[in-house]
Design a protein around this nucleic acid. Structure first.
Lengths: 236, 236
DNA sequence: GATATAGTTTCGGGTAGCCGAACTTATGAC
DNA sequence: GTCATAAGTTCGGCTACCCGAAACTATATC
């Protein structure tokens, strides 16, 4: 039986990938960006918002096209080619988010869904104009680095707050944008990008982590584990 | 044989129309906006960019859903319901065009294609923010009126330049955005929105129309018929 | 080493939208 | 009135993407 997707990939096809395919690549890229857990079919399915069977099918396509490496029943990894495409989409997404906040008064918890759609709808011209208007930003409102137009990306060294020992200090480098509600909570507690934090204690019985937000006169905040997983603190 | 599209239309469905369907409605609305030529299947097909058979199929669907009136082999007209949807899309399109010109430095010949895609990709929130940032404009860069949020639209009274008698004067109220190249030509000749024009003469042997652009000291421009069809002059 | 189970893949089937070919209809020329 | 032709419609078939059910595999547990 001949696999219908076994034809070779040309440069033309890379730019003609459907937006659905681009979405899969973006998700795979994001899933592996800040930690090293294996990217599996079910993880991808959940993040893209489709059934596992749909994800499996698309993974096979993308692997046959040379964008993914994937042995059956195993984890998925981007090839160099796949990463190139993925970073293009990520760039679009993060520039759009930044633009919406800076130019259209969005709050950081509002941008994600709109950006997910816009990233596929804006032209290269529009992207370039937005980039210039923003002064060529290097990170988005959540601290995620914006890949440059040539596809390089620098991920600032940072640790999840939940992994830090009491006594550690640093500044907030990134806050996961997965849950808008959590972002609103953080905002309330002044937990925003670049604010300095100190881990005071790990609370007993899995009650979370106690931190101080802001300088030495800052307020104390107790974070549940889910929250402490969503915040990255820069290594000093 | 039961027509699969004969089910009734609910308010929910009106907001859940596919973007392709919305595009058809927009095209039908635009085709009938400034003149009264009958809107036929082939006209729609050409403007949407699909084959006549595809257009015919979609027209049948939209008619069955109650958005169009259409007797077989005849012209197409929007129902009130169809017009409501169409004007929503037109509003999006024209606001986007206006935004791209005002905020992202687009020229008026660049905006059309980008707006065609963006009109389906922006959220209501984004539309509202753009509208506010622009100060609630009432017409787009080509002079086309922007329908209000509640769906009212006022088409300023105007005549095609080609229909005016020599000696007539007025100001440019609208310039068709169908052909970007023509727009660039007009720009060169200072033929922009609101500039005053006077029809000097109809040139012999179908050579077009001679006009003066700008006040009494303005420059003389000879326009071919296609160009003189693309310009609307306000009735004074 | 056997086995239960969670995760993955395959399979059959569904929808939206598109096309070209073939067919049908309206209309204008005579 | 007849008839050629242009325009519109129907039909079968295509692709991309999706799903649930069923089959399969890796692995953790015993």
């Amino acid at each position: 039986m001949v696999d219908p997707y076994s034809y070779p990939v040309t440069a033309d096809q890379t730019s003609a990938l459907s937006s659905v395919m681009q979405d899969y690549l973006k998700v795979i890229c994001n899933a592996g960006e800040w930690d090293e857990t294996a990217v599996t079919t079910s993880v991808i399915a959940a993040r893209v918002g489709v059934s596992p069977s749909s994800a499996s099918e698309m993974i096979r396509k993308l692997a046959a096209l040379g964008f993914l490496q994937h042995e059956r029943y195993g984890a998925v990894e981007l090839t160099a080619q796949g990463r190139t495409i993925a970073l293009r989409v990520v760039r679009r997404h993060r520039l759009v988010e930044t633009y919406l906040v800076a130019e259209l008064g969005y709050t950081w918890d509002e941008v994600h869904d709109d950006a997910d759609i816009l990233e596929h709808a804006i032209s290269d011209r529009m992207l370039a104009r937005m980039d210039a208007k923003l002064g060529f930003p290097t990170r988005d409102p959540h601290g995620d680095p914006i890949p440059s137009a040539d596809g390089t990306i620098i991920i600032p060294p940072a640790n999840r707050l939940i992994d830090l020992e009491p006594g550690s200090t640093g500044s907030v480098a990134r806050i996961s944008d997965d849950e808008p509600e959590m972002l609103r909570y953080f905002q309330e507690k002044d937990l925003v990008l670049d604010v300095s934090v100190e881990v005071l204690a790990r609370l007993p019985f899995g009650a979370g982590t106690s931190i101080r937000v802001g300088g030495s006169a800052g307020q104390q905040v107790d974070l549940g584990d889910r929250a402490a997983e969503a915040i990255w603190v820069s290594k000093i």
